[in-house]
Nucleic acid binder design. Structure first.
Lengths: 342, 342
DNA sequence: TGTGTCTGATAAAACGGTTTGTCAACGAAG
DNA sequence: CTTCGTTGACAAACCGTTTTATCAGACACA
């Protein structure tokens, strides 16, 4: 079992050539002068011996690890993270790079230690990620290493970043309802002060404006974005005098509450009330019956974009810093229909 | 900006000593004979210069990377994965190790390439993960590197592994219902042929047996474990002549369907029917109203166990291979009550 | 016969650390 | 006055690659 690993030296000796030659041949170095026979012999020997170059030695020599650090606050905990990480991972893999997981949790002290550990030459760049779209101040240590922000924005606006186009997503959601003929649509917004709150409200208003529907502040409520609150808010909204015929919910969890409130009130979806959510958390949007029409967060695409941008900056520090908004596509299921006839 | 990185040599020269001495001092090598003054001087200089050792060089010399590969099929995609990865990550970090992400996706070709890439000395061991509890055959390449299975079992039973104790979890769920007085409890099982299917059925039966309730095959149906199917199955079960007073659902998604079916039938939870789920997917279990009593999969603990076991095996290959079942704790919310009075 | 110019290959120098073995100086013991 | 152990420190080897500079021989040309 524990036989000594075959290294380049082993191959060289077995093939009766120098290590240099083996390296040249195996790496297909352009301009290397090695006879055809020798080349073939080396290839054969290497395959027979099952030679695999030691990546660490290469890294040391090349002063490059082809590894990216994925640093975030609990990034892997959130249900969203999956697709973001996957997008990043697959993009990295496509370039032949690897992803290192650094989870700082919420402990800033740990975060600093993590960063030091990874800066010790193990990664060539860092993806700084948050579990939901936020504006952050990145730790000082990151200034020394190429960094791009993923699902987050730099408060100094100096670093490349990618976030969802909240406003456009909300606009699409609103338009979806308006296009079905709704004129009284309620909006259950997030009560927290984050980019999604402002962005989605702006998108909602833009949709209204474009359709010539006056904005009625009485049709907007703000609550913590969880099902229970969505339930209560919906009860209130749909129980009111001139109830909205459609609801745009800040996210799918709120929509989940809305569904249950509608059921409690004996209202059918979408016959009596139409609902659209946000996030496209599939457990919810597919689990709700009828299926929830919602707006998807472009997690996969953001992960991929961030990696591409980071690798580009690593290979060429001159590339300009971009701060992009990625579109949030609407995904239609069965929760939207025409408003009920009066 | 782009000033040359300070290496150990820099420190040595600045302190007027040899690299050896710097290394000895900074690593606090036991038994190294260096005078107190020299030690202090070295520490000062190192701090002043902001010296951080190059980890790659260390790895090469030590022939150890202190890095673990997390290899899985879409592992990061599943909503569960988060806590598993987090458990692994935090355990690794506790030992001073790092986690490398290798996502093979479903492409076995890619899987092979990934494995080769990581085997090139970049990781000391591999966590082989699946997105749900499965029995797998691990790829040949992994035989050469320390490996432990996470949420999966090796078909040859030769590798250490950690999986949830499905049977015990189902037993707890069943007992929870029985303890509340239910005697007719229905079980909506998974129709697929996986360990969870068998295990949870066995646990269900054990619960019944222990309580002296005869097992009625008519109260068990098997469906694909999604909300829509849970909805249909529940409609059927609760619409039947002698309907069960409680339902044990294979997972929370099925329970989500069951909730909606109950609502459609005008049955209240838990007054008219009690429900317990499995998995504790919080979006669902907390989003359902009333909150869903369910059984939690020990993802965090499994991730942590796997890392501990893997590091143990790496440091000492003699440690025996363990194959453990981790308990699935019940988490009580509001979906279970006494059966309705007749 | 010298002088270039290819060709095929190699020795040696990195890369940045850790570890082993050696050594000079010094005080204590015989 | 040796001998010996201890102290403080360092030179050099090593980890496994890639890359640079060099070299011997063959051949062409003047």
């Amino acid at each position: 079992m524990a036989r000594p690993r075959v290294k380049i030296r082993t191959v060289a000796e077995a093939a009766g050539v120098s290590v240099t030659t083996v390296s040249l041949v195996l790496n297909e170095v352009a301009g290397a002068r090695v006879s055809a026979e020798t080349r073939q012999r080396i290839h054969e020997v290497a395959r027979r011996l099952g030679y695999v170059p030691n990546e660490v030695a290469r890294q040391l020599r090349a002063q490059r690890t082809k590894t990216l650090g994925l640093l975030g606050d609990e990034v892997t905990t959130t249900p969203f993270a999956g697709r973001m990480v996957l997008g990043a991972q697959e993009a990295a893999s496509k370039h032949g790079w690897l992803l290192m997981l650094l989870n700082s949790g919420l402990d800033p002290e740990l975060e600093r230690k993590e960063i030091s550990a990874l800066i010790r030459g193990r990664v060539d760049g860092v993806l700084y990620t948050t579990m939901y779209h936020r504006v952050v101040r990145v730790p000082e240590q990151l200034r020394t290493v190429p960094t791009v922000l993923l699902d987050a924005e730099d408060d100094t606006a100096e670093l490349p970043s990618v976030v969802p186009d909240e406003q456009d997503g909300a606009y699409l959601a609103t338009k979806e309802l308006l296009d079905h003929g709704h004129r009284r649509v309620g909006f259950i917004n997030h009560s927290g002060d984050i980019p999604a709150t402002w962005g989605r409200l702006a998108g909602f208003q833009r949709g209204l404006r474009e359709a010539g529907v006056p904005f009625d502040p009485g049709l907007v409520v703000s609550v913590p974005p969880v099902a229970r609150e969505g339930y209560a808010a919906t009860l209130q909204m749909l129980g009111s005098e001139r109830r909205p015929t459609a609801l745009f919910c800040f996210n799918d969890r709120v929509a989940m509450g809305a569904y249950q409130a509608a059921a409690a009130l004996g209202l059918r979806i979408p016959a009596d009330v139409s609902i659209v959510g946000f996030d496209d958390q599939e457990e919810i949007s597919e689990g709700l019956l009828p299926g929830l029409t919602t707006v998807a967060l472009p997690h996969y695409a953001m992960g991929a974009w961030a990696v591409d941008a980071l690798i580009a900056r690593i290979t060429d520090p001159q590339v300009p810093v971009e701060r992009v908004l990625l579109p949030c596509p609407i995904v239609r299921r069965e929760s939207v229909g025409p408003p009920p006839a009066l």
